[in-house]
Write a protein that binds this DNA or RNA. Sequence first.
DNA 1: TCCCAGGGGCATC
DNA 2: GATGCCCATGGG
Length: 298
Amino acid sequence: LEHKVIRLKIPPLYDFTESLWFLDRNLDDCMHKVLGDKARKMVTLDNKNLLIEISSEKNDLVIKVLNGGPVRDSLVIGYVDEWLDYTRDIRPFYRLLENDKDLSALAVNFRGFRVVGIPDLFETLCWCVLGQQINLEFAYRLKRRLVERYGTALNYEGINYYVFPSPGILKEVPVSELRAMQITTRKAEYLRGISALFDNGSVSKKKLAMLRSEARMKEELIKIRGIGEWTANYAVMKSLRGMNCIPYGDAGINIALNRLKNIPKKNNRKEIDSVFNNFEGWKSYLVYYLWRSLRQPG
DNA sequence: TCCCAGGGGCATC
DNA sequence: GATGCCCATGGG
């Protein structure tokens, strides 16, 4: 069977194995699958569901469309870039890292690591709500339950790939049904509320993107019940590609900066800012590298 | 038993 | 604006 194949030249400071590491990292994320040195994911482009596979060969990033389509190459390429952020020139970020003696090891240890995005804003926000104040493993389990029940599946070579449930479907799910999945009453209410806002069009990625300013995007998001400062920053970073997003209060950031810079783990907003102020334009990347540092001994 | 997890809302001062 | 409490489950 012949598949559509797109080859893209890999730019400096992009390492696909780092993207793969993030996509795998021992967490059971139902929205993609890592098989050896390949990643597979179902994506919706031009109202069509496509199963795509990403791998690397020599100096190329290789995209195969395994199922679905056809859609224009540019749509597929655009999606992969939103997902893996591979075309961004991150050399300026590396110069900033290298100028900081406590952080310069990050540029060596995680060379070529990029922010892995979640192009679907609705999915991002639901994911944030699900994961609030519980451990990651359990959060991924909750997401899997939600997606398996209300999402759209494609079975390919014995594995199910999913499109995240639509707002129209989730807004109608009774709280009791979500409660039965161990999603708390509060979270169920948040999910239904966010779903309704996306379903009636009052909130959308397109509308937020048109605001241009990250600060204004966050401002709009925080108005939504269930979305606080942490989630607004996370969502703008992961879905709208904001470059100056700091999820203040994040436990992982606190631990990483405590290790690397001996900064207190609580009431540390000013200390956090004093570090991040040197990374104007790359704050989100620093957040990501700090998270990255938690999972592998420096 | 305790504390903590890639939080957020709300009441209170 | 800071602080304390609640939610609600699992892991260490």
